[in-house]
Simulated assay, not measured.
Amino acid sequence: MYDAILCPTDGSAGSDAAVDHALYLADLADASIHVLFVVDQGVAGASEWDMVVEREEERGERALDAVAEGGAAREIEVERHLRRGRPHEEILDAAGDYGVDLIVMGTHGRTGLGRFLAAGSVAERVVRHSQAPVLTARLRE
């Protein structure tokens, strides 16, 4: 059913839950995983841009490495991607660019007022605009 799965990560515990689901599904379906880290271009002012981008790219490489190691342990092909831009736009573009059948991503699991205040979340925007099915995984405490 799935040949290629896109798994965006930011290295957080919430995205780790999604990575676990993506690896499990890829193992079941004999699918490959495209793991994606997006350096958000809206996180810093011009004066500190280079330093912030460098720090975020290093964080991204660590997050991508962790997923690649998890895939290698299960003998799952993992392709690593680091992109710059607005996260929801880059995730949607990557899904099309890599021809994925499924997007598996984490969510913060907000409810009530917290969900209302964060209505522009990355996961929610991807769910609303994706052409591919999206599985959201929430960290259970």
Rank of each mutant, 00 (worst) to 15 (best):
Y2M: 07
D3Y: 05
D3V: 01
A4Q: 04
L6K: 02
P8Q: 08
T9H: 08
T9R: 04
G11H: 10
A13N: 12
D16I: 01
A17E: 10
D20M: 01
H21Y: 10
L23K: 13
Y24D: 08
Y24R: 14
L25I: 15
D27M: 04
D27A: 10
A29D: 08
D30C: 11
V38F: 09
D40P: 09
V43R: 15
G45I: 04
A46K: 12
E48K: 13
M51L: 15
E54D: 14
E56S: 09
D65P: 01
D65Y: 06
A66R: 15
A66K: 08
A68L: 07
A68I: 03
G70M: 11
G70P: 14
V78S: 13
E79L: 03
G85W: 14
A94Y: 02
A94C: 12
A95M: 06
G96Q: 11
G99T: 02
V100L: 12
L102D: 09
G106Q: 15
G106H: 02
H108I: 00
G112T: 01
F116I: 02
F116C: 02
F116S: 04
L117S: 01
A119V: 09
R125W: 05
R125C: 03
V127R: 01
H129W: 15
S130A: 15
Q131W: 02
P133L: 11
L135K: 03
R140G: 00
E141S: 09
